[in-house]
C-alpha cells in the first residue's frame, strides 16, 4: 500500500503549482468560455447601445424613457436578472449573455449619450455652416468627439461584464465562475484562488487593451495633452 501523495493538492493549499499543471485543460476551457461570454455580450450591447444613444440624442423625448429604463435595469441585482431570464432562455449560455448584454447596454447608452451631449454647439454649427448634412455631421464630427466618453463607458462595461459573468455559474455557464462554484462545494482552495485571480487578470488586461485602442482611435487627445 502506498502512502497518499503529500503534495500541495493533498494539503489543500491556497497556492498550488501542481493545480496549474494538472488542471491546465479545465482552466483553459473556463478562460475561453469567460472570454466568449464577455466579448459576445459587450459587442452585442455596443451594437444596440449606439443607435439607442443616437436616437435619444436626436429626439429629446426619447432620452427620458431610455435613461429611466436603463437605470431600472442596472438596479436589478445580477442574480435576479439571470433568474428573471430563466423562463425565456432556460439553462443556457444565451441566458448569461442576455443578462450581461442588459448591464453593458445600460453603461454604454449612458456614456455614449453623455459624450454626444458634450459636443459643443459651436462645433455643430460650424460643421453645419460648412454644409455638413445630419448623417455626415453625426459620423465625422459628433461620434468622433463622443469617442473618449464612449470608450470610457466601454471599458467600465467590459470590466463589469468580466466580473459579473462569474455569477453565470448558477446556470452552469459562468466561465471561471464555474470553477469557483465547484471549488466552493468541494472546499478546493487552490481552484477558487486560481480562478479568482484569473478573473481579475482578464479584467485588467481587457481594460488595458481598450485603453490602447482608445489611444489609437483618438490621437488628437494625446496631442492636446502633450
Amino acid at each position: 500500500m502506498t502512502a497518499p501523495p503529500d503534495d500541495c493538492l493533498a494539503r489543500n493549499e491556497w497556492i498550488c503549482g501542481d493545480y496549474l499543471s494538472t488542471r491546465r485543460e479545465i482552466l483553459t476551457d473556463a478562460v475561453l468560455q469567460h472570454l466568449e461570454l464577455t466579448a459576445l455580450s459587450v459587442l452585442i450591447a455596443l451594437a444596440i447601445a449606439l443607435p439607442l444613444a443616437v436616437l435619444a440624442r436626436r429626439w429629446g423625448l426619447a432620452a427620458g424613457p431610455v435613461l429611466a429604463v436603463t437605470t431600472v435595469l442596472y438596479t436589478i441585482p445580477s442574480l435576479a436578472m439571470f433568474s428573471l431570464l430563466l423562463p425565456v432562455y432556460g439553462l443556457s449560455e444565451t441566458l448569461v449573455i442576455a443578462g450581461l448584454v442588459l448591464y453593458s447596454l445600460t453603461l454604454l447608452v449612458r456614456n455614449i449619450l453623455a459624450g454626444l451631449r458634450a459636443v459643443p454647439e459651436d462645433t455643430r454649427q460650424a460643421a453645419r455652416g460648412m454644409g455638413y448634412g445630419p448623417i455626415r455631421l453625426l459620423l465625422t464630427v459628433e461620434l468622433p468627439l463622443a469617442l473618449p466618453a464612449a470608450m470610457a463607458g466601454l471599458r467600465i462595461a467590459t470590466v463589469s461584464a468580466v466580473s459579473l459573468a462569474t455569477v453565470g455559474a448558477i446556470v452552469g455557464f459562468g466561465g471561471l465562475g464555474n470553477l469557483i462554484y465547484s471549488g466552493m462545494n468541494t472546499y478546493f482552495k487552490a481552484q477558487v484562488l486560481t480562478a479568482s485571480v484569473l478573473c481579475v487578470v482578464i479584467a485588467v488586461l481587457a481594460d488595458l487593451l481598450l485603453l490602447g485602442v482608445q489611444r489609437l482611435l483618438t490621437p488628437w487627445t494625446r496631442a492636446a495633452r502633450a
Binding site: 482552495k189 477558487v192 478573473c199
Partner: peptide
Amino acid sequence: SNVGRAVPTFAVLVLLLL
C-alpha cells in the same frame, strides 16, 4: 472604485468562505 469593479463579488464571497 476601479479596482472594486474588476474584482468579482462572487469570487470574494467564496474566498472569504474558505
